[in-house]
Computed example of a mutant assay.
Amino acid sequence: MNLPASGRRVLVSGASRGLGRAVAQAFAANGDRVAVHYGSRAEEARATLDSLSGTGHALTGGDLADPAGAAAVVDAAAGALGGIDVLVNNAAVNERHPLAETTYEEWVAVWQRHVAVNLLATANLSHLAARRMIDGGTGGRIVNIGSRGAFRGEPDHPAYGATKAAVHALGQSLAVSLAPYGIGVASVAPGFFATERVAPRLDGPEGEAIRAQSPFGRVAEAEEVAAAVVWLASPAAEWSSGTILDLNGASYLRS
């Protein structure tokens, strides 16, 4: 069950922009073939696909909140790539919903969306990809994108923090159960990192305070997080299975 260092078949969920795009680009630069998943941003996903170095990449769209949609995404990715060696669970929603400002109806809806996408889709994709890895007998890797907020709390985004904590716990459970099949499972827990989505916040009045969270006086670049994901998916990282790797520039230290 030897996992190659390159030439792998990689599915990245939520890869139309931001961190997902950076992760897809990093794997492609490593010589891997990538299935770029998107939910609704087909045009942006196509831009991600066009930006990838190398050949043999694929585009696959689908609603991961729907279990049948998740299955269709994995089937399409495996069909286009000839299998799946690496799954990166990146797709997520993150909506502001502080309790004191949110109606009960909005609260329920927001929690349902977060659980469906951030947690259940991660669990479903992991099952679907891992079964293919097990049946193929070649091992593989699953890397989950968690969050610093799972540990320090997210008062304005409590469902996000809670579901990311659940993703971390899921990854550790799967790391134990899938190791006999040569499948390593790990998670990263990024702090604040720069993407087009958060650019207005970084450029606005709160930008200085956000950068000051880290003693380095800056936020991460998406490429820094992507580099860690690629390493966790590498043959050299097998003994890191079960880890939750903090990537927050010492902005939050946990014991």
Rank of each mutant, 00 (worst) to 15 (best):
I210L: 04
Q172N: 02
V143C: 06
Y104K: 07
L81M: 05
G146R: 10
T195K: 04
A42S: 08
G191H: 01
I210M: 04
I244E: 13
V93G: 11
I142A: 08
E223K: 05
V93K: 09
S173A: 14
A47G: 06
E223S: 12
G153Y: 06
D85G: 13
A220G: 10
P98M: 08
V115G: 09
W111Y: 13
G83M: 06
S234W: 01
A165N: 07
A199C: 09
A226V: 01
L49F: 01
A130E: 07
R131T: 15
R218W: 06
E196L: 14
G182Y: 10
H57D: 03
L11N: 12
P155M: 02
E223Q: 10
R41N: 08
G140L: 10
N118R: 12
S51Y: 00
H114Q: 01
G61Q: 00
F151Q: 15
V229L: 06
N2L: 12
A227Q: 02
M133Q: 12
V115P: 05
L81F: 06
P190E: 06
A100H: 08
W107T: 03
G204P: 12
A29H: 12
P155V: 05
N30P: 11
P180R: 06
H127N: 07
A72N: 01
N118I: 11
A166R: 02
I142F: 08
R9Y: 08
L59Y: 00
A129V: 14
D85M: 13
F216L: 15
R96I: 09
Y181V: 15
H157A: 11
T103E: 14
M133W: 05
N118F: 12
S126Y: 11
V110T: 13
G161D: 00
S234M: 01
D156R: 14
A123T: 13
L19Y: 04
G182M: 11
G153D: 03
A5Q: 12
A209P: 11
M1G: 14
A45S: 00
S173Q: 13
G79E: 01
G62L: 02
M133S: 06
A15L: 04
A78Q: 01
G217N: 07
L245E: 05
E105T: 11
V110K: 04
P180Y: 11
D246F: 14
A47H: 00
A42Q: 10
A71G: 14
A22Q: 03
V185D: 00
E206Q: 11
N124S: 12
E238C: 08
D66E: 07
A42G: 03
R17G: 04
E105V: 09
L174I: 03
E223P: 15
F192T: 15
A26E: 13
S187P: 09
R148I: 10
S234G: 09
E106M: 07
E224A: 02
N94T: 03
Y38W: 00
R113M: 02
G137C: 05
A209R: 15
A159V: 12
V115F: 13
S51G: 00
A68L: 10
A109W: 14
R131N: 08
G137P: 13
G61K: 02
A159W: 12
A186V: 06
T48E: 00
Y160A: 05
A166T: 05
L232N: 00
G79K: 01
W231F: 13
W111D: 00
E223I: 03
R41G: 05
R21M: 11
I84A: 11
G184W: 03
